[in-house]
């Protein structure tokens, strides 16, 4: 299996009023086709920055990012992006929100309507297709946003803490949903999170980042196999991995403080 996403020697610096901020530095990362990689790290370590560069929303200051062998210079049709906030448009119904990517790609709504309904059904929102987003709970809104990211069936999913604002019950529910969708459709997924359990539960590889400057401090394979369910969380391997990652993060924290 070849790398679908390939990041080499990437750095990102921002010019600010108080001089230059190094958001990420020396990042090398390969994401294999069909794999699920979690980016785990403390707040401000550059996870979003990295993800946005892969999505083509920001340009790296240094290094290269390849997506399926092509330099990323702008957002591509290969990527579905999901943010922490659902960003559903309040003037569109739920199903119209799901169809937004189709409208923007100048596709025919009619041709995607069945898929949109099927996606909404798969996340348990079929009854809410014609509701307005503000009639939905936070978790339901994120489900709709997930459908929107999937409607044009992009091979790559980039998820920036999509469940970060949700309660833990809803989050676990959506974790199962995401896992199922990613595996059924063979997506390549890069997920940003600062929840250790979420990272271990979802990913087959966890990339740990440390802050100031943000860089990769550890890459941990998760050999738990799929499918996973609630029982998985109780496995000794799961607990051991989570503990190891927690320690890794703790050390990353301290290094971060010392470097300042």
């Amino acid at each position: 299996m070849s790398a679908l996403i390939s990041i080499t020697g990437v750095a990102k610096r921002y010019a600010t009023d108080r001089g230059e901020v190094v958001a990420v530095q020396d990042v090398d990362l390969e994401v294999r086709q069909g794999s699920f990689v979690a980016l785990l790290g403390p707040s401000g370590c550059g996870k979003s920055t990295l993800l946005r560069m892969v999505a083509g929303l920001d340009a790296p200051s240094e290094g290269r990012i390849l997506l399926d062998g092509q330099d990323v210079v702008a957002p591509t049709a290969m990527v579905g992006f999901m943010f922490q906030h659902s960003l559903l448009f309040p003037w569109r119904s739920v199903i119209e929100n799901v169809l937004l990517p189709v409208d923007i790609a100048r596709g025919k709504r009619a041709e995607h309507l069945d898929r949109a309904h099927a996606l909404l059904a798969s996340v348990g929102l079929e009854e809410f297709a014609h509701h307005r987003p503000n009639e939905l709970s936070g978790g339901m809104q994120q489900r709709a946003a997930l459908c929107r990211a999937l409607i044009v069936d992009p091979p790559v999913l980039l998820l920036d803490e999509p469940f970060g604002a949700l309660d833990s019950i809803t989050r676990e529910e959506l974790n199962d949903l995401l896992l199922q969708i990613c595996h059924e459709s063979g997506k390549t997924t890069l997920l940003v999170t600062h929840d250790v359990e979420e990272a271990v539960y979802l990913a087959d590889e966890v990339v740990v980042m440390s802050s100031r400057p943000g860089r990769i401090s550890d890459v941990v394979g998760v050999e738990l196999g799929y499918p996973r369910d609630t029982e998985t969380r109780n496995l000794p391997e799961f607990r051991a991995l989570a503990t190891r990652l927690r320690k890794g993060l703790g050390i990353a924290h301290r290094q971060g403080r010392a470097a300042r």
Partner: peptide, 14 residues
């Protein structure tokens, strides 16, 4: 308009 909403439309290549 929220900056993130603009990012969403950008990511959809609007």
């Amino acid at each position: 308009v929220e900056k993130e909403a603009i990012d969403l439309t950008r990511s959809l290549r609007a």
